[in-house]
Design a protein around this nucleic acid. Structure first.
Lengths: 152, 152
DNA sequence: GACATATATTTGCCTTGACAAATATACTTC
DNA sequence: GAAGTATATTTGTCAAGGCAAATATATGTC
C-alpha cells in the first residue's frame, strides 16, 4: 500500500471513528465542567434536565424520545434524578398510563449552573471555528444523519 | 422563552447530541451491512480488524490506543476475535510483556468483505455532501477535536 | 546488580444502555 | 361494550466499556 492510498483511506475511515472521538471528548469535557462546579451529574442526566428546563414538563416516553434514550434506561435515570431531588413523577392528567415529569425547585435552581457549563463547553469545543463554519458543521451533520435515516 | 431564543439554543445544544446521533446511525448501518453480508462482527471488532489489516501486526496496547479502547476491553475483544479465528496472539520479539497480534489467513480473507461494507456505508452516509463538503466536515471535526484536547 | 518507576496484559467490579417480557391503560373497530 | 391493537412504564437480562488491582517485564538511576 503506497503512502497516498494509505492517507486516503485513513482520511475516509475516520468518519465513524472521528465522530466517536469528538463526542467522547465533549462528554468528558462536559462532565469535568459539571464536576468542577460541584454538580454530580452524568452527561445523560444533564441532557434530561436540559430538556425539562427548556421544554417544560412532559411524559417519560416523550422525554426518552427527545434524548434518544431507551425507555428502560429512562426509568432508571428518572429514579436517580428523583432521588437527588431534581424532578418529580406526577400523574398525567389525560393519560393514566403515563407520568408527568417535572422539575422541582431544586432542579430549576440547578439549571442556572448547568446552562453556564453547557455554554462554556460548547464555546471551547467550537472556538477554532468561525460562526459560518459552526453553522456548516451543524448542517453537514444533519444532512449525514438524514442520509443515514432515509435509506433511499 | 420566545421562539427565536428557543431555535437558537436548540441549534447550539445539539452539537454533543447530534454527534451522538450520527455516530449511532453509522454504527447501526455498519453492523446491519455486516450482518447482511453474513459477517458476525460488532463495530468495535470491525475496527480492530481494520487496523490490523491496514497497519499490520502490533501489540495489544498499540491496538487499544489506535482505536481509543480501554486495555481491559481490548483483552476481551481479542479473546472473541481469536476464538472466531480471525487473529492470533503471538509472543512479541523485543518485549516479553507484550503480544504481537496478527491476522490469520481467515482474518485476511474476511477483510476483503469488510472493506466493501465499509465503503458502502461511508458512501451512503456522505452521499448528500459533495467532495468539498466531505473534506470540510472532516476538517471541522478534527479542529473541534483538537480544540477539546489542547485545553489552552 | 539493586531499586524505583513505568508499561503490557489480564481479571474483577461497576455503570450504562439496548432488548424483551410483563402489566396497565388508551384507542379503534365491529 | 367487547375484542384486538397500540402505547406507557417498569423490571430482568445481557454485552460493552471504564477503572482499579494484580502480575510480569522493561527501563532508568545509583
Amino acid at each position: 500500500m503506497n503512502p497516498d492510498s494509505l492517507a486516503f483511506s485513513t482520511r475516509k475511515e475516520s468518519l465513524g471513528v472521528l465522530l466517536g472521538l469528538v463526542r467522547t471528548e465533549i462528554v468528558r469535557a462536559m462532565e469535568a465542567e459539571l464536576a468542577a462546579n460541584g454538580v454530580d451529574l452524568r452527561f445523560t442526566q444533564f441532557l434530561i434536565l436540559k430538556r425539562l428546563a427548556r421544554l417544560g414538563p412532559m411524559s417519560a416516553s416523550e422525554l426518552a424520545r427527545s434524548v434518544e434514550l431507551d425507555g428502560g434506561a429512562m426509568t432508571r435515570q428518572l429514579d436517580q434524578l428523583e432521588h437527588k431531588g431534581y424532578l418529580r413523577r406526577c400523574p398525567h392528567e389525560q393519560d393514566r398510563r403515563a407520568l408527568r415529569i417535572e422539575l422541582t425547585a431544586a432542579g430549576d435552581a440547578l439549571w442556572q449552573q448547568l446552562t453556564d457549563c453547557n455554554d462554556r463547553v460548547l464555546a471551547a469545543a467550537q472556538r477554532s471555528l468561525d460562526s459560518t463554519e459552526q453553522a456548516q458543521l451543524h448542517d453537514y451533520l444533519e444532512r449525514v444523519l438524514h442520509a443515514l435515516r432515509d435509506k433511499n
